[in-house]
């Protein structure tokens, strides 16, 4: 598998685009992330970090959603360059 090459969403920097491949998390949190548009195949943009460094705001299907590192650590995919 190519999974070794996958990056974590939490590694992506502000301004970067990211295509989700998989969510390695289970339960309610996974379902909630899915509902918000963090779905495999969707492309999101890293907007910015909170003044204290965490959480981070993401643009996902035309809305802004903030995630803590604990969540974005479990979202894997490819970094597809800057906006």
């Amino acid at each position: 598998m190519t999974e070794a090459k996958l990056a974590r969403l939490s590694d992506a920097n502000p301004g970067e685009r990211f295509r989700i491949t998989t969510l390695k998390i289970e339960g309610t949190m996974k379902r909630r992330l899915l509902d918000l548009g963090f779905v495999p195949g969707s492309e999101i943009t890293v907007l910015q970090k909170s003044p204290l460094g965490d959480p981070t705001a993401y643009r996902v299907s035309h809305t802004t959603i903030a995630l803590r590192k604990e969540e974005s650590d479990h979202i894997y995919g490819e970094r597809i360059g800057n906006e």
Partner: peptide, 9 residues
């Protein structure tokens, strides 16, 4: 616990 926060326009 985990949570998500929407920043509405």
């Amino acid at each position: 616990t985990h949570y998500t926060l929407e920043l509405p326009p």
